[in-house]
Amino acid sequence: MKGSKGKSRSVLPGFGLTMGFTVFYLGVMVLIPLAGVFIKTSGMSLSELWQTISAPRVAASLKVSFVTSFSAAALNMVFGLLVAWVLVRYRFPGKRLVDSLVDLPFALPTAVAGIALTAIYAPNGWIGQYLEPLGIKVAYTPLGITIALVFIGLPFVVRTVQPILQDMDKETEEAAVMLGAYRLRTFIRVILPGLVPPLLTGFALAFARGVGEYGSVVFISGNMPMKTEIAPLLIMTKLEQYDYAGATAIAMVMLVLSFLMLLLINYLQWRSNRRVISE
């Protein structure tokens, strides 16, 4: 047979060149900046490093950033799935407008979003003035930070789940209904397993965006140390104080924790993919 002898050729031409460019680009844009964080932090002794990252203010800011980001990403898994389901499975007037509004957080400057959310949820804002008599305070609290992160993270889940829903075979759902399965049982046993991998992907993207978010959070958080101060703001504060080693130390902790979290999510996604394929 023609081509049976010799080395097999790649389907894509120029693989060596494109692969080299990919490695070079990732190295320059990703690996070198991240390595700079560790190199700058390595100038600190272990005692100095521990004293910096274990300070109560640093620990509180890391807790606020990671807890609110995790909570917002979890909420977006639920509401993002609902939005994607409505956009894929139903036809209604204004559907294209709703579909385009999903991408608004991508186009809107984050500072503008933060100012708008603060104005809405402040004690004298459009919504905040009705929540204040009920004892619910949103602006300048972790709840307000979570709402801001939900706003910026929703498109990640919707756009990740939406194409999977569109490609799903409806014959399996119809067969389950014909066999007497209730709608909720059909959703849980037939539809949801195929949506777990994209949901985890959307969760990871929303979580990663939330951990490093600054513009949309800095206004609504109130920036109160030990209460609503986020880690990116504390890094900016240390940079303004010319404490570069302290700023990179906090950044390194955020990087390591984020990497471990994303590694766990990728493992869960891999397990979910294997389960779906085996079934």
Results as ranks from 00 to 15, higher is better:
residue 23 V to R: 06
residue 105 P to Q: 11
residue 82 L to T: 07
residue 78 V to R: 01
residue 41 T to W: 06
residue 94 G to C: 10
residue 70 F to P: 03
residue 47 S to Q: 12
residue 61 S to A: 15
residue 59 A to F: 07
residue 65 S to H: 11
residue 42 S to P: 03
residue 60 A to Q: 01
residue 10 S to A: 14
residue 47 S to N: 10
residue 92 F to S: 12
residue 102 V to L: 09
residue 92 F to A: 08
residue 16 G to L: 14
residue 37 V to P: 01
residue 70 F to A: 14
residue 24 F to N: 03
residue 41 T to E: 07
residue 68 T to K: 11
residue 82 L to N: 02
residue 25 Y to Q: 08
residue 115 I to T: 07
residue 108 L to E: 00
residue 10 S to W: 12
residue 94 G to W: 04
residue 38 F to V: 14
residue 106 F to N: 03
residue 90 Y to F: 15
residue 38 F to C: 08
residue 21 F to E: 00
residue 15 F to G: 06
residue 35 A to C: 13
residue 55 A to E: 08
residue 36 G to I: 01
residue 20 G to P: 10
residue 80 G to Y: 06
residue 48 E to M: 12
residue 59 A to T: 09
residue 56 P to I: 10
residue 95 K to S: 03
residue 61 S to Q: 01
residue 21 F to N: 02
residue 105 P to F: 13
residue 116 A to N: 07
residue 89 R to N: 13
residue 29 M to R: 00
residue 77 M to C: 15
residue 57 R to N: 10
residue 112 V to T: 10
residue 48 E to N: 12
residue 80 G to E: 04
residue 34 L to M: 03
residue 97 L to E: 04
residue 31 L to G: 09
residue 31 L to C: 11
residue 103 D to V: 07
residue 51 Q to E: 13
residue 19 M to A: 15
residue 89 R to V: 05
residue 78 V to I: 15
residue 33 P to T: 08
residue 19 M to S: 15
residue 34 L to Q: 09
residue 104 L to S: 01
residue 111 A to Y: 11
residue 77 M to V: 14
residue 46 L to D: 02
residue 110 T to F: 07
residue 11 V to T: 09
residue 93 P to L: 11
residue 87 L to E: 09
residue 48 E to Y: 07
residue 46 L to T: 10
residue 51 Q to I: 00
residue 113 A to K: 07
residue 48 E to H: 11
residue 113 A to E: 03
residue 30 V to N: 03
residue 64 V to I: 15
residue 56 P to D: 12
residue 74 A to S: 13
residue 92 F to K: 01
residue 96 R to N: 15
residue 39 I to K: 12
residue 33 P to M: 01
residue 62 L to S: 02
residue 58 V to E: 02
residue 67 V to H: 05
residue 112 V to I: 15
residue 36 G to K: 02
residue 110 T to K: 08
residue 114 G to A: 09
residue 67 V to A: 13
residue 84 A to R: 06
residue 10 S to Y: 12
residue 44 M to L: 15
residue 96 R to S: 15
residue 14 G to H: 07
residue 59 A to N: 02
residue 110 T to Y: 05
residue 22 T to Q: 11
residue 46 L to N: 05
residue 113 A to N: 06
residue 88 V to L: 09
residue 19 M to K: 05
residue 66 F to K: 10
residue 25 Y to I: 10
residue 18 T to S: 14
residue 115 I to D: 00
residue 42 S to R: 00
residue 103 D to I: 05
residue 69 S to N: 09
residue 47 S to F: 04
residue 43 G to D: 01
residue 97 L to Y: 11
residue 112 V to M: 11
residue 54 S to C: 07
residue 83 V to K: 04
residue 78 V to H: 00
residue 115 I to Q: 09
residue 104 L to E: 05
residue 18 T to Y: 15
residue 12 L to M: 12
residue 85 W to H: 13
residue 72 A to N: 04
residue 98 V to Y: 08
residue 55 A to Q: 08
residue 66 F to P: 04
residue 73 A to E: 08
residue 41 T to D: 03
residue 13 P to E: 07
residue 88 V to G: 02
residue 61 S to L: 05
residue 32 I to L: 14
residue 15 F to D: 01
residue 28 V to D: 07
residue 98 V to S: 05
residue 88 V to I: 14
residue 90 Y to A: 07
residue 87 L to W: 00
residue 108 L to S: 06
residue 43 G to N: 00
residue 82 L to W: 12
residue 108 L to G: 02
residue 80 G to A: 04
residue 44 M to A: 14
residue 103 D to E: 10
residue 107 A to G: 14
residue 27 G to I: 04
residue 116 A to Q: 05
residue 99 D to Q: 14
residue 104 L to P: 06
residue 38 F to T: 09
residue 73 A to F: 11
